[in-house]
Amino acid sequence: MDKLRRVLSGQDENEELGLTSQVLDSSTLSYSTRVKWFVICFAGGILCSILGSALLFLPNGIKLFAVFYTIGNISALASTCFLMGPLKQLKRMFEKTRLIATIAMLLCLILTLCAVFWWHKKGLAIVFCILQFLAMTWYSISYIPFARDAVIKCFTTCVS
């Protein structure tokens, strides 16, 4: 257990943990396999989001929209686990620079489903889907150096 704690905290990344490490580490898959599954997961996420958007116009389609749109975002987010591994992905998600974006994104995923299934508020579900999109975008650009600064500068220039 102490070894696992050291690896999770980043103190001992080169130490082997046996089967647990193999299951949770992306390096056990070949590079081409990781890229293929990333593309499959990401494309599936986009497909689910588009399908959800198309289902929005059906009677009672708001529930299907919320579910497929949320599944699409989760799938797109999970796709990066194939590139860097689930543990590293989780560690990077909750770094100081991404913490607020991660929490907002996960909260919006949950609130979208709550708005549709428990509160039965269609308008609120759409608002949460829009916030989900914005939070996911803000989270995603956090991986691109200086992208957030460029977006903020562009936005402030357009507003003023």
Rank of each mutant, 00 (worst) to 15 (best):
D2N: 06
L4R: 02
S9G: 04
S9P: 00
D12C: 04
E15A: 11
E16R: 03
D25H: 06
S27T: 01
Y31A: 03
V35D: 05
V35G: 02
W37N: 14
F38H: 05
V39W: 10
I46R: 04
I46G: 15
L51F: 15
G52A: 02
A54D: 10
L56K: 08
L56P: 05
L56A: 09
F57P: 07
P59D: 08
K63W: 05
K63T: 13
L64C: 01
V67E: 08
F68M: 14
I71H: 00
G72C: 06
A76K: 12
L77Y: 13
S79P: 14
S79V: 04
L83E: 11
G85A: 14
P86V: 14
P86G: 10
L87V: 13
K88A: 15
Q89M: 15
M93I: 00
F94I: 14
L99I: 14
L106G: 03
L107Q: 06
L107V: 12
I110C: 07
L111G: 08
T112Y: 04
L113T: 08
C114L: 15
W119T: 07
K121Q: 06
K122F: 05
K122I: 04
G123A: 02
L124P: 03
I126P: 00
I130Q: 03
L131G: 01
L134N: 00
A135C: 03
W138F: 12
S140N: 06
I141K: 03
Y143V: 03
I144S: 00
F146G: 01
D149I: 09
D149L: 13
I152R: 08
C154M: 06
F155T: 05
S160W: 06
